[in-house]
Simulated assay, not measured.
Amino acid sequence: MLRFLPAPLRGVIATLMLISNTLLFCWPLFFGALIKAALPFTGARKVINHVMHRCAESWISVNKFWMDLVQPIQWDVQGLESVDMRHSYLITSNHQSWVDILVLQYQLNRKAPFLKFFLKQELIWVPVIGLCWWALEFPFMQRFSKEYLAKHPEKRGQDMLTTRKACERFKANPVSVFNFLEGTRFTEAKHEQQDSPFRYLLKPKAGGIAFVLDAMGDQLSALLNVTIHYPGGKPSFWDLLSGRIKKIVVRFDKMEIPAQFIGQSYDQSDEYRLAFQQWVNQLWEDKDAQLVRLHAEYPA
């Protein structure tokens, strides 16, 4: 354990381990992507994807190692025992920090099917890791402002098409499809700008998961609703690298997806869209209430 070292030095060591780990495992992913392009057969793609996912899981395992090395985090986790590798899940969580992603990977790695995140288009340009996400067929979403769509109406529905294409690829094997419903990290400025009705959350965006349920709802066995709380306050990624995070509280709530939301068209039925938004808002009200309780139980 490296707890005896100064936090900045631990951060440097963890950063070097993360970079080395990423550079080590990126090459099998790039090679696998090239083979898939050369052999676009269903059977070959299935085998190659399996190998690539195992590589990605090994990358996460090494990340778990350096996280434990710099500071053994005290985990308070409930609800994970009902998750397995045999079923596909739709997963969502509150979003406060880049640390959230590593928290989810730490807890779900090799306990649930490999996580596939919906990512902003510009993240493909993140050095090395952006190409890894591309090789692993993470869906990249291009966001357009209302002003842009008003000038370019032909771009409407672009995100829905991206979602449908991604979900078609996901149907071959069990998968965990992940989407941050808030669409961005929580900050007080964003909370105030939105005039969010929630205390610890931004307003949820229902469209993304609605399109997932439309495209592959029959394959998804449940919704895994995750709530993350940092008793020490919202951490930065450097806080994680330097071992400054002492405790993380995670709650997994496995929920049945209402049958009326399976295989429906979110963009073509006003009645369905309203009902779906009400369901999502109720999920967020419950999550906000849970965060209120967690903040009281685990104060900063």
Rank of each mutant, 00 (worst) to 15 (best):
L18P: 00
S20P: 00
N21G: 10
N21S: 11
L24H: 00
L29A: 14
A33K: 08
A33I: 01
K36H: 06
F41N: 03
K46G: 04
N49S: 12
H53N: 13
F65E: 08
W66L: 15
W66M: 14
D68Q: 12
V70A: 12
D76S: 14
D76H: 11
V77K: 00
L80A: 12
L80F: 04
D84C: 12
H87Q: 13
Y89E: 09
L90D: 04
S93P: 01
Q96S: 08
D100F: 03
D100M: 07
L104I: 14
L108H: 00
N109K: 00
F114L: 15
L115R: 02
W125S: 15
V126I: 15
G130D: 09
P139K: 01
F144V: 09
K146E: 11
L149H: 04
R156M: 14
G157W: 02
G157R: 01
N173Q: 15
P174S: 11
S176R: 01
F178Y: 12
F178M: 15
F186W: 12
A189E: 15
K190T: 05
E192Q: 14
P197Y: 10
F198L: 12
L201I: 10
L201Q: 09
L201D: 09
K203S: 13
G207Y: 06
G207E: 10
A215P: 03
L223G: 11
L224T: 05
T227Q: 06
P231R: 08
G232D: 11
L241V: 10
L241G: 09
G243T: 05
K246E: 15
K247Q: 15
E256R: 10
Q264W: 03
D267M: 13
D270W: 04
E271Y: 02
Y272F: 15
W279T: 03
Q282V: 02
L283F: 09
E285P: 00
E285F: 02
E285W: 01
R293I: 08
L294C: 08
L294R: 02
